[in-house]
Amino acid sequence: MPTSPTRLTRRDFLKQGAAAAGALAAAQAAPLSALAAPAPDIALAKGGPAEATRKAVEALGGMAAFVKPGQKVVIKPNMSFAAGPESAANTHPAVIAELMRLCKEAGASRVLVLDNCLADPAGCLKLSGIAAACEAIDKDCVHALKDERFFRKADIAGAKVLPSTMVMQDVLEADVLIPAPKAKSHGATGVTLSLKGMMGLIYERESFHRIGLDDAIVDLASLLKPKVKLVVIDATSVMTSGGPYGPGPVAKLDTVLAARDMVAADAQAVLLSEWYGQKVAPSQVRHIRYAADRGLGRLDVEKMTVVTVQA
């Protein structure tokens, strides 16, 4: 039987409004009930990239805790290099695709996967496998943006070295930004995780090396932090040295990490592996330490609630 579109009467409108208000009140109350069984700060899920991604986000409270219906989401992968998943230079495509699915399930109105690639964009999109994996879910959602018109100037209040920069317009207008980096080594910053990965959202990153890489990374992160409700780090395989491009040895950890704050996520990821053949404390990574010093998050992960789940 065909359904006819219902007309919205004043009465219905009031009813719906009341229902919505009730729902909002319930949502406000949710944190109180959460106190009883506190959601962990960091979740580590072991397993294949897709399943572990889903499990990790679930363990942290589910995507509905981070993405509300109708919101616009940008996922920031690593896809800067024209290389396949086995090289561990880019985020595993299954991780990004699964995040995309979760966002859609949570009711996001629009989910975009955006990066300003270092290498030739067409090669990055193709060889990383991210475009193919995500476009199967939603078409035209993965883009490597380089052209100036996709970026807008953003001022960074309280910046140390980067008072303003050009950030992707879709990121500035998004409700939620989900950094989803690959865990890998980096010859200049030690590791490159969610904080360092933000450099892929701006128009001109060359100057970072001139003005002070670590401080500039933290400045940029301070600008984007309000949009970051969830961080997912792909540590299914980790390039433990020779990064960011490689080649480097790849350690198979079968782990996906989810956290609410970039600093904690990166700090925990540092502890997952040896880097350049040595154990490293999160505070030894300059940009992570600077970010914590400036109040962008916590790096004392040993004092945080970390759960490990099997996918």
């Binding site: 230079a89 060889l127 030690g190």
Partner: peptide
């Protein structure tokens, strides 16, 4: 990095470290 091929080992210069 050959497209599609696993990467080989490569390390930092001896005596250097990107970490504090």
């Amino acid at each position: 990095v050959k497209p599609g091929a696993p990467a080989g080992p490569e390390n930092l210069a001896p005596g250097s470290s990107p970490f504090d």
